[in-house]
Design a protein around this nucleic acid. Sequence first.
DNA 1: ATCACATTGTGAAACTAATCACAGCTTAAC
DNA 2: GTTAAGCTGTGATTAGTTTCACAATGTGAT
Lengths: 214, 214
Amino acid sequence: MPTSERTIGRLSLYRRLLKQAVADGQENVYSHELGARAGATACQVRRDLMGLGCAGSPSRGYKVRALLERIDLFLDAPDVEPVAIVGVGNLGRAILSFFQRRRPKLQITAAFDSDPWKVDRVVQGVRCHALADIERVVREQEITLAVLTVPAGAAQEVVDTLVAAGIKGILNFAPAPLRVPLGVFVEDMDLAMSLEKVAYFARGRGGAPRKGGK
Amino acid sequence: MPTSERTIGRLSLYRRLLKQAVADGQENVYSHELGARAGATACQVRRDLMGLGCAGSPSRGYKVRALLERIDLFLDAPDVEPVAIVGVGNLGRAILSFFQRRRPKLQITAAFDSDPWKVDRVVQGVRCHALADIERVVREQEITLAVLTVPAGAAQEVVDTLVAAGIKGILNFAPAPLRVPLGVFVEDMDLAMSLEKVAYFARGRGGAPRKGGK
DNA sequence: ATCACATTGTGAAACTAATCACAGCTTAAC
DNA sequence: GTTAAGCTGTGATTAGTTTCACAATGTGAT
Ligand SMILES: NC(=O)c1ccc[n+]([C@@H]2O[C@H](COP(=O)([O-])OP(=O)(O)OC[C@H]3O[C@@H](n4cnc5c(N)ncnc54)[C@H](O)[C@@H]3O)[C@@H](O)[C@H]2O)c1
Ligand SMILES: NC(=O)c1ccc[n+]([C@@H]2O[C@H](COP(=O)([O-])OP(=O)(O)OC[C@H]3O[C@@H](n4cnc5c(N)ncnc54)[C@H](O)[C@@H]3O)[C@@H](O)[C@H]2O)c1
């Protein structure tokens, strides 16, 4: 079970590319094809797939449909997983609109905001609740995942509430370091940091080349 | 010059934490303090700082101000770096509003969109130009960095234009693999992928614990 | 002064992830 | 059939990153 954070990311990427391949009518892929599309080496693709127990044929490569099925089984929970979003500001609304156009297994089903003007509004088909209702709603809907788009200053406080309510995974957009107990997974999406990284490497300083090269 | 992609990310994070420390009136930090705040080990912090040529005192730790100065010098370009954003939709507007509240060295100075209704509008103080003007505006303002928030289907086309105009670094939000020539750096911010990762690890499958533990 | 202590700086070790290299298949062509 | 070609599956290898371990060092108490 070769499940490093990096591998999981690649599998998720392969899945998207494979869905595209299915849509294009492609039945089989070679590791080097998938690798080229994903920005990985053929070798790495094979290893990742091997970890899933996928087998390919030396002459036809891997069956696209079989791969997809295997990856789905591995990455997804058996049922739809409801997701909460806290902070229905500019970013929160953008994410809501993005996610509500089809995403079968991960569905945002509840929003929360401290602003009384937003409470009880319905945004992109999702009801916005008051902060005080987090615990109740999260338990009622058995939500285990949350997207955090509140100002940095409020982040830790909100996280504590979420964790107390039983949340197990958080996608955090607030530029603040979150303290969570063991067993809760946090993924930080730090826009400012990423842009600084881009600026640094664009300057050609680091010898970090980049996938592609049409 | 220990400049892996990972290290750069941490330095950027240290910088933000150190700015906070200065605001709080803190003069010195120990590696383990900074480490705790950044979710890294003391050891790693020391190594990262060592790479910058920073020195600390065994009794007082590192001087916060000196560290900041050193990191700024290392990460930032000498002058302000103008940034372009392409795709002024929900996400693009959120990013514009986020970035325009102070960010001294990286400034979004030009926006582009294919929608005629948006062209010539001013969003968050930034003028939105027509797509056809990318090359001219980018060259005029000597822009080398771009944020990409167009639909996935348009991403590659836009990237080709950006690269032709001289862009060297791209922060990409479109869930599409971008092909760029060598020397152009792309950082993908894949929201869907990240949420899938959170979902996977929240399920407790992988043994990937997480920083913190108040 | 001297000692006990906590911390830095860093070579070495441990660990993790990516790549190489090649045996073993499977097919297509002749 | 037999051969040639090209791919998979995987042990071995290499590269990269993190942690360990500890000598060296500055500080404050006695
Ligand atoms: N806008 C972006 O592109 C962007 C990018 C990266 C990071 N971020 C971060 O994401 C967060 C949100 O950004 P934004 O641009 O949407 O800001 P915003 O001000 O538009 O939205 C913040 C929302 O959070 C709500 N809120 C405030 N305190 C709250 C609390 N204690 N509990 C619940 N809700 C609360 C506010 O009512 C508001 O609706 C910030 O931390 C920001 O730094 C934003
Ligand atoms: N909204 C989110 O939270 C979110 C999250 C992750 C990724 N994304 C991705 O970011 C991108 C933008 O998302 P969004 O929600 O803002 O979509 P959107 O539809 O609101 O905005 C897209 C914008 O791009 C413009 N556009 C379309 N084609 C263009 C072209 N060829 N050149 C220039 N501009 C063009 C459109 O006019 C529109 O203004 C999409 O690729 C989406 O998948 C969005």
